[in-house]
Amino acid sequence: MAGITGSSLAVATAAHEGPPEAVGAARPGRRRAARRGDGRIASLFLAPALVGFALFYLYPTIRGVYFSFTDYDLLSPPHSVGAANYRYLWRDPLFWNALRVTLQYVVINIVSQTVLALGLAWLMFRLTRSVLVRVLFLVPWLVPNVAVGLLWLWLLDANLGFVNHLITDLGGSSQGFFTTPSLAMPTIAVINTWQYTGYTALLFYAGMLQIPGTLFESARLDGAGEVRTFTRITLPLLRPIMALVLVVSLIGSFQIFDTVSIDPAQGGPVNATRVIYYYIYQLAFTQFRMGYASAVAVTLVLILGVLTFLQLRLLRASRSDLA
């Protein structure tokens, strides 16, 4: 999960560099090297990464696809079952349920997180350049998800939790945030929004710093208010960054796991929080149905691939209005 979430850093960097080839191509040293070729020394430089990639990325990818066509319990060797896992998946109500609750989570999480982060970024951008403020907003992102999950289990505890004390003090009735089926998934979505909003806001904030100040200046001279400036200048010009951040957080959001797994309800109540990642985990490591778990994982990869593609098209990602 973390790997995907964090990759926005580099993506954001790449978006602003222009074609990387242009940087060194014109240098004489580079041309000399091109004639000579660096094949031998390159293989030395690449050796550790290549070994790591081959063993722990490429090989498991191929093997994962292979597992998905087998019956495999981790003890006896896998034996082929053709497309049976995929046929089973099509009829598996738990799979569709997992997809449904994951989507519910993703929608609540992404919408609330993006809106709040945009607002927060705009506030910071207009009010302060303080590093301290930014560092403080980054804290929840740096804390292990498991600790965050524990913390909110405690804050939202039905009997002793601080939030329920607040609610009852204000005259409301105590809520079982994790034990009420209709509340459990939204609760977890909001917890993750709480954890990632600051980080996302900092990415947006960085994007806002990129917008030439002269644009804001002329908007002001033309008499545009805060709202108009935000909707007519900031939002459109932020689109490339926003597209990348959205793609990356969407992929990350689909992989919600840690907060769900720390919840003692184990995917409950009544399957309400058995998200797809957790379902895969349970299939593989508590039921030892590695083959079927792999089939669900392959399906997840395909879904994410299609979603990313669609999203990038829809948001016309890498084209900037500044260019």
């Binding site: 999960m1 995907i4 498991p60 990818t61 990642y277 994982a297 997840l300």
Partner: peptide, 8 residues
């Protein structure tokens, strides 16, 4: 996604 490679 990491879970995909995590199983194998």
């Amino acid at each position: 996604p990491p879970i995909f490679t995590m199983l194998p």
